[in-house]
């Protein structure tokens, strides 16, 4: 595939992304006429004041969240797959998502076990993200510690999986001992949600997102030589240990923050990099990184649109939609291509 067809693909995906962004904003549990939505977007007044509030304070933040969650998780998946040179790697595999879930579980479910110690204050908007980030960071530290002591990347992958199982087990124990209302709260969080983020929270989210994305620039070059394996990459002048830690840090910041704000969203990180590789038929990261980001954003916008379509009253959990979408895609890819590349 040559450069002009790359450009065509990127142009098409960008247009699709922008269209879906607006479709996403115009759909929701409250019917708002298109002209009113356009009016709000142009900074004018809509016919009803409530419509303005819905679009500005609910739908636009939700669409922005969808873009950041989709692109962030997908890039994390791509980085993991390249680092481990394993097409099955993804943010879930390293146990980082489970770590974030563990943090939230301790906060929501642990109160019955530990009494009022953990829940002394009221549940503000911030406690959940902080708990999730702490959990993600804890597992990440353990993984990085293991990574520096274990040379084999395949072992790190398995260690990540073990940490994931370990965290899930603790969550099961916590769930078993917790009360129904708390359990319900946790289950709803684990469904995943793109909404409910205030502009302040979006800002915090965006700061971490941009910081992590900037971290990709200095390692962009090494991602391609990692495709030859670590020994070749090293012989090409790549400081392997340092770059591995940078990749782990970027992934865990992205996964941690995303899981903190929108719950554990499955499959996107695993499936989207493969979609990008299939569409662009390349393993060159200078193409794959932006392609994965674009497709990731598109996929989550689409999933969110599907989630609110079936009834105008209810919104389906986003986590269910991504898995409903992701699992068949991976199966279809394997049947059609017979082979997945890194």
């Amino acid at each position: 595939m040559n450069k002009t067809s790359y450009k065509k693909h990127f142009l098409f995906l960008s247009v699709l992304g922008i269209v879906l962004f607006f479709v996403n904003i115009s759909l929701g549990s409250v019917m708002i006429p298109i002209q009113d939505i356009m009016a709000v977007l142009m900074g004018e007044n809509a016919n009803k004041e409530s419509w303005e509030i819905i679009v500005l304070n609910f739908r636009i933040p939700k669409a922005i969240t969808a873009v950041m969650v989709g692109s962030g998780l997908s890039v994390s998946g791509l980085l993991m797959q390249t680092l481990f040179r394993n097409p099955l790697a993804g943010p879930f595999v390293l146990g980082i998502s489970s770590g974030a879930s563990l943090g939230v579980a301790f906060l929501l479910l642990g109160s019955s076990l530990f009494g009022g110690v953990l829940m002394s204050g009221t549940l503000s908007n911030w406690t959940l993200p902080i708990a999730a980030s702490l959990g993600a960071f804890l597992v990440l530290s353990a993984v990085i510690f293991a990574a520096n002591n274990v040379r084999n990347t395949m072992s790190i992958l398995i260690i990540g999986l073990m940490f994931g199982s370990f965290a899930s087990a603790i969550i099961s124990v916590l769930s078993y001992f917790s009360e129904a209302t708390q359990l319900q709260q946790f289950v709803f969080w684990s469904f995943g949600s793109l909404g409910n983020l205030s502009w302040n929270e979006i800002l915090v989210f965006a700061v971490f997102y941009v910081l992590a994305m900037c971290g990709i620039f200095p390692i962009l070059k090494s991602l391609n030589s990692l495709l030859l394996g670590e020994n070749y990459a090293k012989s090409l002048g790549i400081p392997i240990q340092k770059n591995r830690n940078i990749i782990l840090l970027i992934t865990s910041i992205l996964t941690g923050v995303i899981t903190a704000f929108s719950g554990p969203i499955a499959f996107v990180g695993l499936a989207v990099p493969h979609l990008a590789r299939m569409l662009f038929t390349t393993s060159n990261h200078k193409v794959l990184v932006p392609a994965t980001m674009l497709i990731g954003a598109i996929v989550l916008l689409l999933c969110d649109i599907i989630a609110q379509l079936p009834t105008s009253e209810h919104t389906l959990p986003i986590n269910a939609i991504t898995s409903l979408f992701g699992a068949p895609v991976v199966i279809w890819l394997l049947i059609r291509k017979k082979k997945l590349y890194v």
């Binding site: 040179r85 391609n224 030589s225 394996g229 393993s283 082979k339 890194v342």
Partner: peptide, 20 residues
């Protein structure tokens, strides 16, 4: 050692030699 399975072309693979 065997190369991991990726979609690199021959030219891209040789071009990696220019990375330093």
């Amino acid at each position: 050692e065997r190369l991991p399975e990726s979609q690199l072309t021959v030219f891209e693979l040789i071009a990696l030699g220019r990375q330093p």
